[in-house]
């Protein structure tokens, strides 16, 4: 057995297209997932049960089903109820974003709850409204504590982006499959894909370790 990466380098273009696809879906899901998660997290934190109950159902449902099942449901099942088709990108983004929203909602809620009530009192004593106190006083402090967990979420989203290949969205793993089947070089193709993911993810993972260490030191 000889390793022959030439057949992979010949397909650099395909890998670049795949990397672009991976980064695109990662960016979409990161923004959608973490911002929707904040809304859901605030709903979970709320005492108003018209907000609390739907948010809880959302979180429980999406945390307790596998994300691949969600993606396939959005791709194969949802279009039946809709008057239009759903693209692979849309289905995968929906699944990954909603799943990430459910997980990050719990991070936001935990972070907000971890802030002492004295901070709320202080903000209110200045005459701040709830929204102002949340935005100006509570969230900035909570965000620091949540940062390691949110970074881990980002890492998970990056890894989950590979599941989009199950609905034939063009991303790195999908391109790896293509290269492997065209050139009969699965060893090199999949090793290359694994290395590329490692290169993308390693700095993120190190950053999350750094944040965790810093948080532990500061508390």
């Amino acid at each position: 057995m000889r390793w022959d990466f030439a057949s992979v380098f010949d397909n650099t273009d395909a890998l670049l297209v795949g990397a672009a696809g991976t980064l695109r879906i990662f960016a979409i899901c990161l923004v959608l997932g973490l911002s929707l998660g904040l809304l859901v997290g605030l709903g979970r934190y709320s005492r108003n049960r018209w907000l609390h109950i739907p948010a809880t159902v959302f979180v429980e449902f999406f945390r307790n089903t596998p994300v691949l099942v969600q993606i396939l449901w959005f791709y194969f099942a949802l279009p039946i109820l809709l008057p239009f088709q759903i693209s692979p990108l849309a289905a995968a983004s929906l699944g990954i974003s909603l799943n990430s929203a459910a997980f990050s909602a719990e991070i936001y809620r935990g972070g907000i709850q971890s802030i002492e009530t004295g901070q709320w009192d202080g903000a209110r004593a200045l005459g701040m409204r709830w929204g102002q106190a949340m935005r100006r006083i509570i969230l900035p402090q909570a965000l620091k504590r949540m940062l390691p967990a949110l970074t881990n979420r980002a890492i998970e989203i990056f890894k989950m982006s590979t599941l989009a290949s199950a609905v034939a969205y063009v991303e790195l793993l999908q391109q790896g499959k293509l290269i492997a089947s065209l050139n009969y070089n699965p060893i090199e193709a999949y090793t290359a894909v694994a290395v590329i993911f490692f290169v993308f993810l390693w700095p993120l993972v190190q950053f999350s370790y750094f944040l965790e260490r810093r948080l532990r030191r500061d508390e």
């Binding site: 890894k159 982006s161 590979t162 599941l163 699965p186 999949y190 090793t191 993911f197 993972v205």
Partner: peptide, 22 residues
């Protein structure tokens, strides 16, 4: 580190398609 830093689906494909040949 390697297994925490790469996507599980990539690992699975590697073990299923690449390792047997290797």
């Amino acid at each position: 580190e390697v297994f925490r830093t790469t996507p599980p689906l990539v690992q699975l494909f590697w073990f299923f398609f690449a390792l047997p040949i290797l």
